[in-house]
Design a binder for these strands. Structure first.
Lengths: 237, 237
DNA sequence: TCAAAAGTGTTCGCTATACACCCATGG
DNA sequence: CCATGGGTGTATAGCGAACACTTTTGA
């Protein structure tokens, strides 16, 4: 169960009662314009060597869990100050076969375009949500909980801000909502709703590659959103 | 900062790197028919001796955080198998002046009537939400976060089940929703909405003490609720 | 010239909201 | 007999859901 004595190592941090190790793990969500994706890293060591897992690591004693998660995220993706959110702490006694480890799990919403070493890196890769392989440890469970949490948050916050590029088409926005909520919307109703809400600002540029017809680009009107939210409004679908 | 050497104690649990202590704390919500309340205990020892705080304690190495929280809850209130839910883990490095302690926070929804040693116990007392004094540690912050989490959950789950007695009046149900969401509803619209949803089962008994007119008692029709939920329905206000 | 994608309405039914009336009870 | 609280109904505005027409462009 718990290894009290580790042979031939320096064991200089001693306590009267046993303490678990504490890690942070980060489910990094991205959006490619069509599908929701997560960034996984392949484990190079046992246990679960070769399996994919979420990036994460031990929390330092002089940082909060959030600071730790942001540090790990920076190390993995190069992103500074990404949008992250704590959603659950996983504590099953046997979740790590080596010793007692609890993990404080965060999810991050990032723009895939801004993440270095994307699709082709050997040890870090984006996976579409429906193509995620079996993961290390209890990370399957962590992913399910992260999806749930994301689905909840979207009812209260305009998450699109963080996952989409500055400028995007209405169709991309709709794809995003459909991917997160796993539903289908009527194209025209979605458009009408967005227009009524007045949260989108239409750009002059209409460029859109590789389609039949050119599409307008939009950007979020964050000020307008904050104003609506203040008045007790909630973004709902 | 971190005490590596505690004098004249047995320090038999040793690690290569420092480990934080891990506790669970539980925000226990109750409802008296009018106001939302929380159960606090008064600290008998330093630090923060005399201050009120949420019940909680160290997580054992052979139990999950949830089991730990349930155990603490049972010890404090005598309640078995209460409805609890993890909502956040608090990790600020200095949140405990003695040593590094992180706490996994839960809230519990209980029926005040079923909790022993209620309003008059010396070291445990119910406080209305707007009468909570300044708390120990970072528990003020924990309370705010718990309220937020409760307010979120009420949009997706019929929390009334857990906080109200088996039988209740419509007015009590309305008071509960108003207390949690901090809004006011029109009495007649609330009644109509409940009627349309068909989630309430009217009892024959109409007893209601100390009022001008007798009021009907209702109970939740849990089966009906589950059925609606299955069809993608969400309880909203 | 045809298929596919995008911009823009219109209609209808339901629900949220505002509001009114009657009944019972205790002072 | 009136003030208070509780049960029940009705009218209206606005939103969600279903649905249609036009335009552009590449094959």
């Amino acid at each position: 169960m718990d290894k009290i004595n580790k042979t031939d190592e320096e064991l200089k941090y001693c306590y009267k009662y046993p303490h678990p190790s504490v890690t942070t793990d980060c489910v990094i969500f991205g959006f490619d314009g069509t599908k929701l994706k997560v960034l996984l890293v392949q484990r190079g060591i046992e246990p679960y060597k070769g399996r994919w897992a979420f990036p994460g690591g031990f929390m330092n004693m002089d940082e909060s869990a959030e600071e730790g998660a942001l540090r790990e995220l920076q190390e993995e993706t190069g992103l500074e100050g990404a949008y992250i959110r704590q959603f659950h702490t996983f504590t099953a006694p046997q979740r790590d076969p080596r010793e007692r480890v609890i993990t404080i799990a965060y999810y991050a919403l990032v723009r895939m375009q801004e993440v270095k070493g994307s699709d082709d890196a050997a040890d870090a890769r984006w996976f579409a949500l429906d193509e995620v392989p079996q993961l290390a440890f209890d990370h399957d469970q962590i992913l399910r909980k992260a999806e749930q949490a994301l689905r909840q948050l979207i009812h209260f916050e305009p998450i699109g801000f963080e996952l989409l590029p500055e400028e995007f088409t209405i169709k991309e926005l709709q794809n995003l909502y459909e991917a997160i909520l796993d539903v289908r919307f009527d194209r025209r109703n979605f458009y009408n709703k967005m227009k009524r809400l007045e949260m989108l600002e239409q750009m002059d540029e209409t460029v859109n590659p590789s389609q039949k017809k050119e599409a307008f680009l939009f950007r979020f009107n964050r000020a307008k959103y904050e104003e609506l939210k203040q008045k007790g409004f909630r973004l709902e679908f």
